Amino acid sequence: METDCTRDDVPADRAVAPLAAGTRLLHIGPHKTGTTALQGALFAAKEAMAQHGVDFPATSRHPMSAALAVCSRPGMMGNSKPTDRHWETLVGQVAATGRRTSVVSSEFFADAPDDATIARIVEELGGDRVHVLVTLRPLARIMPSQWQQYVQNGLRMGYEDWLEHMLRKPPYEKPNPSFWRRHRHDRLIERWVRAVGPGRVTVVVVDDTDRGGLMRTFEALLGLPENLLQEVPDTANRSLTLAETEMLRNLNVEFRGNELPEELYSQLVRYGAVMHMKNACVPGPGDVKIRTPRWAAEAAAGIGAEAAERIGASGVRVIGDLALLSAVPRQPDAPADAEPRIAPEVAAQALYGALAAAAAAPVRSSVPAQSRTVHQTPSKELVKVLGHRCLKKLRRR
């Protein structure tokens, strides 16, 4: 039986009071704060939530293209650029929920470039019915995960060099200006408070020691029965090990150096080699993880402490312990001889993923004769030509 009330099934002793029925809950991330797990759980429970008056209007787990379009972001390297049509589709899906409670989640909303864009997002998703939710984790935990994600999008800079640029080289915008736009969390929250006011912003501090705690918090906010939201295993979203990331980073150097088409990177590397490697290989206890130097972890903790103080004074609703934002995670001591070595089977799976992606585009025509033989062609030029040919084949699907 469906109902427009989101509170009937909720135990009275819950610590988190649910939002008003009819709220349009907008979860803006930011990145690496449990967003993918949450989106997977919401999408998997879409039909069950609807029976309790809560709609998940997006037709996919993550309406990424819509968020990228409204925030004027280009998307992932090599992917087609999202258009206003993606955003207009999501707006229509949200509007179709009528007076029922609904929830939309994309970490790319945290990339909104200015107050005008934020105001547009809020107005078109429901105006004063919109309640903004921000999930936060300690910066020291976010930084290694965010770096390897940037590498998956073509970054060529090593981790310690990247940390130097992000923490020690003003204006801290190179090579990834999006990082502090997303992860200077106090300023992120202040931008959205200017659009909706502090009474319509909730901050959830994720406690990594409480597995499932984020799901329970969302259930309480949406007035859903406890344990309705369950994490969906997603090997494709796992973080890369240090060896895997370094292999990919070195590939990025070669890819850029030979000026290959970005679409080729998207097809063969991101959705071919990397995706298959993630799905086929599970890191073991002997794999070296990405480790943040002590100086960087302490610098991140200092920024987190300052952010926590400003968030606490902003008047927004806070669920969880803001002190966690200034925590310096304890890292297990790595063996003295630990080196980031890629296992042969992992390399094989990555290579197979790229070959499988290429094989999905069959050859439809013979290669025309060339005025020079392969042996007479410089290797850099040869790589570039082969890359363009491979891309043409992929486009013929």
Rank of each mutant, 00 (worst) to 15 (best):
A44M: 02
A354H: 11
L264I: 00
A347K: 01
Q349W: 13
E244H: 13
K169T: 11
P11T: 00
Q148R: 14
V16H: 08
R156Q: 09
G75Y: 10
A350H: 01
T377V: 12
H86N: 09
E124C: 01
H27N: 11
R364V: 00
K81N: 01
P18L: 07
L42V: 10
V201L: 09
F109C: 03
L90D: 05
R317V: 11
L90T: 02
P344Y: 12
E173M: 04
M76K: 11
A313R: 15
A119P: 00
P113D: 06
V253S: 04
A58V: 06
K81W: 03
W295M: 02
V196L: 05
P63S: 10
Y271T: 07
K81Y: 03
V363D: 03
R61Q: 10
A96G: 03
E2I: 06
A116V: 06
D161L: 12
R216S: 07
E2T: 09
D234H: 15
R330D: 14
G78P: 03
T33F: 00
V206A: 04
T245I: 03
L90W: 06
Q349V: 05
L251V: 10
S365H: 01
L167V: 03
M157N: 02
P11R: 09
T35H: 14
G312I: 03
E160V: 12
H185Y: 14
L68N: 09
A356L: 12
D210T: 08
D4W: 05
G304D: 02
D287M: 02
A334M: 10
A296K: 07
K32E: 11
G92I: 02
V203N: 01
V288D: 04
A347D: 00
A67R: 03
E306H: 13
I311E: 03
A45E: 13
A354N: 11
V232E: 15
P335G: 05
L38D: 08
M64S: 14
S239Y: 10
R341A: 09
E88S: 13
A12H: 06
D4P: 02
P57K: 11
G387M: 00
A336V: 15
R99W: 05
E244T: 13
R182L: 12
Q376N: 13
